[in-house]
Design a protein around this nucleic acid. Sequence first.
DNA 1: ACCTGAACACCGTTCAAGT
DNA 2: ACCTGAACACCGTTCAAGT
Lengths: 217, 217
Amino acid sequence: MAQVRPMRADARRNRERLLAAAVEAFAAQGEGASLDDIAKRAGVGAGTLYRHFPTRRALLEAMYSDRIEAIAERAGELAERLPAGAALVAWLDELGLGMIQMRGLRALLSSSVGGGEEAGRGAGGASSDCCDPLRQAVARLVGDAQRAGELRRDVGAMDVLRLVHGVAMACGEAVGGTSVGDAGDAEGAEGAERAEDVGERLRRYVGLLMEGLRARG
Amino acid sequence: MAQVRPMRADARRNRERLLAAAVEAFAAQGEGASLDDIAKRAGVGAGTLYRHFPTRRALLEAMYSDRIEAIAERAGELAERLPAGAALVAWLDELGLGMIQMRGLRALLSSSVGGGEEAGRGAGGASSDCCDPLRQAVARLVGDAQRAGELRRDVGAMDVLRLVHGVAMACGEAVGGTSVGDAGDAEGAEGAERAEDVGERLRRYVGLLMEGLRARG
DNA sequence: ACCTGAACACCGTTCAAGT
DNA sequence: ACCTGAACACCGTTCAAGT
């Protein structure tokens, strides 16, 4: 699992630089930022990027895997502190906010959850997946809520994940952090909204959704 | 609104050919089919495509405007034949199925509804929009259902549109009609599912969603 | 008035040559 | 073992030349 032999010092440094540049680029230009551009920002050759991250998806996974695991771990904390139904709602809010903040994560989950066609699945063993921790987390919370009689028993964990994913995608685009002074359209980020507004909308939508998923007494 | 002067015969013919080729290409290759390819299929020069459809979005709008209007008109029929709540559900099912069948329509609605970043809004007067008929249709059905006491009054028509759009996006990719024998991955359309399965899932999800949106008596 | 297709810019991806 | 960067293929877009 871990590297058999530690990476050469320059390789490790390049890897870090690439990841940092990628975070910047995706934040500023959204998904589909130019890979060539990322390599240049990082000050490495294009080939080096491909050596470390053979696909765009691999790069996204590396960027977000820490954050994904952190979100997955929150499930355990919430499950301890809150009743099962509330824990599920709270966790889904956090997941949705994560997807709104990290544009790339949406594409990842998209292909991981069977949602869309962006960020094509890697060729090969399609099964192992960076979103596995999320799947496990939602399975646990959904199971708890069902056993507690707070959630319909005719929906599965994947249904819940898919629905929240869809809702988050439908919530709109929050205006990104460091938007570079693009020479493009005037009027600034047309159509984008204040991050808080989008976040609030997400919570409303997750609430409505949960209303439908709640077990009827 | 209508053409001031009728198009020259060859122009009209090319336009038809381009639309037919586009329908084929989008069905076979999904969104983001090559525009150059579409021009070649249609047997016209690349410049001709741009003359008729300056942006990818313009092409998609022209392709789907008939279908969009047909769906919008269904709202009136359903409103006459069914109680307000049932009419809304039935119409949302049809809209969702439309979005699943027409991959391009999802991207259109995405940008139209403030959902995603695909299919960038056309520069210029962003207000007029091919999805206006859908907006009007949903506004009518939502209003009816609210007046009939069958729908919460704290949600707006756009909320409903966004939610159903999100749910449809989350439903997964139906396997397309005429999938050309691509030399790509083995195993056929990996991850795509039988159209009926996706359609059934959509109906389930719309049902769950409506459960949350229903007015509590 | 409209069409053609060569030309240009840009991006992803590969690979021979370097250290 | 890893990096570089030129080279290639592909796609969107424009525009001078044609009819």
